[in-house]
Design a protein around this nucleic acid. Sequence first.
DNA 1: AACCCGTGGGG
DNA 2: TCCCCAAGGGT
Length: 340
Amino acid sequence: MKAQDIRRFREALLTWYHKEKRDLPWRKANDPYHIWISEVMLQQTKVDTVIPYYEKFIEAYPTLPDMAAADEEHVLKNWEGLGYYSRARNLHAGVKEVVERYNGSLPTTREEISSIRGIGPYTAGAILSIAYQVPEHAVDGNVMRVLSRVLFIEEDIAKPKTKKIFEEAVMELIDRHDPSGFNQGLMELGATICTPTKPSCLLCPINDVCEAFSRGLQETLPIKTKKTKALSQQWNVLVVENEHGELLMEKRQSKGLLANMWQFPMMDPNELDVSMFAEKMTLKHVFSHLIWELNVFYVKANDLHMKADGVWKSADEIEKLPKAVPMIKIWDAYKKENVG
DNA sequence: AACCCGTGGGG
DNA sequence: TCCCCAAGGGT
């Protein structure tokens, strides 16, 4: 892009952003800790979904040391339903690192901040630019989409290698006086105008420097190859009740899918003959790359002629546990059928 | 590099 | 129904 167009690009984007930006909770103050929480929550997650969780976190942990002092299970409970639970575990671990290694305040270089758990290339750049006005790239899906169109970049954005092209482009284009506004402006534009389908090019503040628009090819960019589809799994879920009205719960392992979340015991269909139990409900839950098809049975402990791993929990205790989302639905159904 | 890791909404 | 997408990071 010509130097004159770059200046035009910066000025138009920043003017538009500061005039049109949405009023979002994490834009009220520029506390690096608040920015950090919002950036982690916003990973692969829409603004409308994040807002209530963000408010809940700020209320539960107003300062960084507050979160550092919390139990992981407490943090997970506040994250329940938001998805990608390693984000919560990594954020919590990262916050504790900052207390231990940096006396409670985030470092301001890309190298140091990137060493913190859960802070990758994007989040590092986002915190540095938004909270500290450091001119660093923060390349997410929005930025790749916007710049692929403006600069007419035809590389496959599904390939990790391609991101480097966009990071270098941002370092050349970024406004050194307002890195925060520039990075957020690109993302805001991608979220509201330069959308994946049917971009509103006629409303776009930078349509006069957009190569794709000038060629009428904005709908063909970015180029992104498809991923493979999800695999289906069958499980039996047992809601086992003992003579005290307690239910058997198990905690998932500390790594992998739904790590450290609680569930009713899940069994492989070949592991247990369920023909003597009445099926209570079926449930389908779709993850990004996996589908659970669950057959749920209510069972009295005495009728279960096998030893199942787990811990007996009262209703009050179960209520407070961070539960895997499909289990929340099962728990809600169980509560409805056992009122009083 | 390729795969794992959630959820809700839109077309 | 199905597919895609949304302010990615860890392994």
